[in-house]
Design a protein around this nucleic acid. Structure first.
Lengths: 348, 348
DNA sequence: GTGAAAGCGCTAACAT
DNA sequence: ATGTTAGCGCTTTCAC
């Protein structure tokens, strides 16, 4: 059985209240010697406060619920990491619940698992929920969500897709590419539309216009990128660069280009989006706009902590990615097999 | 403020105990009508039990602590997913704590965050901890760990590396390859040694012996695989297959082979280990022994639940992977760009 | 500067 | 079949 505060108090010859104050309330006036003794005793006896009791007694539990569609997907896992790290610095912990799709059916499960144990909830990639559903599931707790498909609204963290697309296109322009094609994701995704807007505006800003022949639609999958690229390769005037709205489609495009006997980046430069794990190990290593998952998570954690204090809705926050320059866009040295240290631990 | 049991009880004109029994103890004899009324009321008033209170009152919290070196790495995130899913089916939740290395310094943080809030602890990839440290950090709670570097002992879930290596080598033999080389991970890893043993025994069992020239040592990184393969390619008698102890080294080997003007799998077949995300998108798609992370997590969850009941140490449990046949080992059709549905959701 | 007492929401032992 | 009571470990008035 773990040591209780009561036991510490008895050992120190003081009351539980004094022990509590000595250990957790440095403001409170306690005789120095008494405080020392209590603290020493707590250490010796291996005391660690029962947070369940504290949670019951106090106004809050210092636990945040994370409701994620799938914690193990490459994006969510980094988001979750960002949340956890950020929360840790403020003494908060988190409970994670997975809801594989069928979100409304999961509502009860979520509530049962979280059941007033949390002070607030962060929804990660809760694509299917309407704002009404979110509020409903959150069960009157403050919540924040990381947006995916819908445009970011109140209490939402989103990605600055527009900015990311501009990063990619501007870089290609800087490298001297002028016939830049775009392979989009599904139209109903907010991200897709924003990236398209960023692409178009980046070109317009420098007085290049995008031929509509150069805009293709994919479905996020590699194969759709390949098909889109094949269509581009059939045009009378070939593009000299492709910006794909995600890495998977970018890779498909690269394969199509290679299969046509052309070289990436020499003949056609390719930039993707997301910075998936494979981007650094494929050939050529994929230049890409990093999706700042970790930072999204951090921002979400900060936002929920803010909401815990103010209780007022917080306006949407957009996080910006950055361009990771590798080999597929040209302009750097030869191909190098280089792997980010984070990718390590290959074994087990 | 959330509805309390007290409120339900008052509304139903019964005592709190009756309400509690009606809602959570279907065995208990309660007048049918009363039970119905209470249940209806609970539903109408949006009651969900305060698990903090229940945790304080009862013997256990139904929460398991997960202590992971890094939740966001590709292995751990799937392990965590397996744990969460398995726990969910028994009504348990989990709290996750990250300990990026420097584990002992983190001990206090772990204890403070978990602080008697959990019934047991699962250590994920806690490579650096000794068993003594684990017990220490677990703070008298039952714990289970997923082994990585050390050989699996009591209360440990491990991977059947020996079996996995045999899967790979046997398959290569079945495809007619006879000069099979092995690229090992660092020797101090239990996994490396086991995979080597599996490789050697698989050959011996069919009366092929492995020339020591065919055994190279890598460090898990892609580049070490490339260098190892280059050395193999310099031998008087080239291998016709390579089994690499992880996918990263396998990929490095493939690149070395391709750079030497040879073809994978025609000239040299390659099989990796882990089934990393990139294995399905590189060219040729990598055949590999899947590291069953999800199942490791499930097993860990089951084991900790068992320990919660028995309180006796549980013997080590080894989980087996499976061979994923793609293109790099030959023997199947042409290269196909195919992606596992789980790899999807490329956008955001 | 310290202690006594109350109570967070729940459940289980003990009544009736 | 239902109610009363006690208490999980903690913090926080309130009293001295």
């Amino acid at each position: 059985m773990p040591t209780t505060l009561e036991e510490i108090a008895r050992a120190a010859g003081v009351s539980a209240s004094t022990a509590s104050r000595a250990l957790h309330n440095s403001e409170y006036p306690i005789r120095d010697l008494t405080r020392q003794r209590i603290m020493q005793l707590a250490k010796d006896m291996g005391y660690s406060p029962n947070l369940t009791a504290r949670g019951l007694r106090g106004k809050n539990t210092n636990v945040i619920g994370i409701v994620a569609e799938n914690v193990s997907d490459p994006f969510s896992s980094k988001i979750v990491r960002g949340i956890i790290d950020q929360l840790k610095s403020t003494g908060f912990t988190s409970i994670i619940v997975n809801t594989d799709y069928d979100p409304l059916a999961e509502k009860e499960a979520v509530i049962n698992l979280i059941g007033n144990r949390t002070d607030g909830i962060i929804f990660v990639n809760a694509s299917v929920y309407s704002d009404q559903d979110l509020r409903n599931i959150a069960n009157n707790q403050p919540y924040v969500s990381i947006a995916r498909i819908q445009p970011p609204g109140e209490n939402t963290i989103g990605l600055d897709d527009y900015y990311g697309a501009q990063l990619a296109v501007n870089h290609l322009l800087k490298l001297g590419r002028r016939r830049i094609a775009y392979i989009s994701g599904p139209e109903f995704w907010w991200s897709s539309r924003e990236r398209l807007a960023g692409y178009l505006d980046a070109l317009k800003l420098r007085n290049y216009s995008a031929s509509s022949d150069y805009i293709k639609q994919g479905d996020w999958e590699a194969n759709s990128g390949r098909i889109a690229a094949q269509e581009l390769l059939a045009l009378p005037e070939l593009p000299d660069a492709i910006f794909a709205a995600n890495d998977l489609m970018a890779l498909g495009a690269i394969y199509a280009i290679q299969d046509a006997g052309l070289d990436v980046p020499r003949d056609i430069a390719v930039v993707g989006h997301d910075d998936r794990e494979f981007a650094q190990v494929v050939r050529p290593a994929l230049s890409t706009v990093r999706l700042p998952c970790y930072e999204l998570g951090q921002a979400a954690a900060q936002m929920i902590l803010m909401r815990l204090r103010t209780d007022e809705p917080v306006p949407a926050l957009l996080v910006r990615g950055e361009l990771i320059i590798r080999d597929s866009c040209g302009g750097v040295g030869l191909y190098q097999l280089q792997v980010d240290p984070k990718l390590r631990s290959g074994g087990m």
